[in-house]
Simulated scan of single mutants.
Amino acid sequence: MTETIKILICDDSALIRSILTAILSAEADMEVVGTAIHAKDAREKIKKFNPDVLTLDIEMPGMDGLSFLEKIMTLRPMPVVMISSLTQKGTASTMKAMELGVFEVVGKPTHGLKEKFDIISDDIVSKVRAAATGKVSPINRDAFLDKPEDGIKQTSTEFDLIAIGSSTGGVVAIKEIIPYLSKYSPPVVITQHMPPGYIESLAKRLNEHSKVTVKEAEDNETLQTGYVYIAPGDQHLEVIRSGAIMKTKLSDGETVSGHKPSVDVLFNSIANLSLCKAIGIILTGMGKDGAQGLLSMRERGSKTIGQDEATSVVYGMPKAASEIGAVEDVLPLQKIHTELKALCWPEQR
């Protein structure tokens, strides 16, 4: 018999608390053990009910949700799903929440609440259910400290491209890779599952603390050494050839493997490139998007890496890829940037 997931809902709106309680209580494996109207109330009820998952709004009376989240993740780390209207704006609030270790974010409707919540109810349920089994990482306060020089002196490497796919927990995972990359790194392309509007903030945050240039991908850009291109939240990213030059291609097609942007779309496009020596990396995330694409890359000669279970917030995508033979090397997150250096510049290890 499946254990019941105990949930505490924290929101200052009585209507929102009622709607979320109805949505989550309707699931056979879920129980809303309590609701809270502000941080102090939530703190007491966390002690009383010991919930498995906390849903949290950013805007609350007294201590705001982000400040409370930081205290939680410092003193009593637990899975938190942020449900807030502020998360829809792709602002620094969302980036801060993800950096603090929030499991997932859900944009809270601001009007037509009952109807809009009906539309996103399945998404809320799936994220809360996944959070209950996901890993909680303590806050890494050194994540964006300036990284030491990598010692790379040469500008060339035998690899033409690095491709990364990630989902839940991926924002934190990417932060453990990109700031360590050399300015001589091959072009990097990333598909991270995020809603529209969020990627620009993520790219800006990473760019401020990296030796490479990080940006949201645009259509028909020439891939350059020392640049990182992240797929927009509502378009597929592919890599195509224009003669000897590799370029980005954005498309607004149907979802693939349940997602847009899709990691499979990115990886498959690279697998289909002629004379391209690439490295494919699949990181933490729910589901199996990217597994088949990574297998195609490996079958066509690419080096492939999967994040290990111990350091994955959700060992879904890397596990699916490993199970079908798509992953050549399984590594803890903290060793992936070291492996990239060793692969690209083996004589400078």
Score class of each variant (00 low, 15 high):
Ile7Trp: 03
Ile7Asn: 11
Leu8Trp: 04
Cys10Thr: 15
Thr21Tyr: 13
Ala26Thr: 07
Ala28Lys: 13
Asp29Cys: 02
Asp29Gln: 14
Gly34Cys: 11
Ala36Lys: 00
Asp41Ala: 05
Phe49Leu: 04
Asn50Asp: 14
Pro51Lys: 13
Val53Ser: 05
Thr55Asp: 12
Leu56Tyr: 05
Ile58Gln: 00
Met60Gln: 12
Met63Gly: 01
Met63His: 05
Asp64Glu: 03
Gly65Ala: 07
Leu69Lys: 01
Leu69Phe: 04
Arg76Ala: 01
Val81Phe: 13
Ser84Pro: 00
Leu86Ser: 02
Thr94Glu: 01
Leu100Lys: 03
Glu104Tyr: 06
Glu104Pro: 04
Glu104Gly: 00
Val105Ile: 15
Pro109Glu: 11
Pro109Asp: 02
Pro109Ile: 01
Leu113His: 14
Lys116Ala: 12
Ala132Arg: 07
Ala132Lys: 08
Ala132His: 01
Val136Gln: 08
Pro138Lys: 01
Ile139Tyr: 11
Ala143Val: 12
Asp146Met: 15
Pro148Gly: 03
Asp150Met: 01
Ile152Asp: 10
Gln154Ala: 09
Ser156Phe: 15
Gly165Trp: 11
Val172Ala: 09
Ala173Gln: 04
Glu176Lys: 03
Ile177Ala: 11
Ser182Asp: 08
Ile190Ala: 05
Ser201Cys: 15
Leu206Phe: 15
Glu208Thr: 11
Glu208Tyr: 08
Lys211Asn: 12
Lys211Ala: 15
Glu216Lys: 13
Asn220Gly: 08
Thr222Asp: 10
Leu223Glu: 04
Tyr227Asn: 11
Ile230Gly: 03
Glu238Ile: 04
Ile240Tyr: 10
Arg241Met: 13
Ser242Trp: 00
Lys247Trp: 00
Ser251Lys: 06
Asp252Gln: 13
Gly258Asp: 10
Val263Arg: 04
Val265His: 08
Leu266Phe: 08
Phe267Arg: 11
Asn268Lys: 09
Ser269Ala: 07
Ile270Gln: 04
Ile270Leu: 06
Ser274His: 14
Ser274Ile: 13
Ala278Cys: 07
Ile282Leu: 14
Gly285Phe: 00
Gly287Arg: 00
Ser302His: 08
Ala310Pro: 06
Thr311Gln: 09
Tyr315Gly: 06
Lys319Asp: 05
Lys319Gly: 01
Val327Cys: 03
Glu328Phe: 11
Val330Leu: 06
Leu331Gly: 08
Leu331Arg: 10
His337Gln: 12
Leu340Ile: 09
Ala342Lys: 13
Leu343Trp: 07
Trp345Ile: 03
Trp345Glu: 09
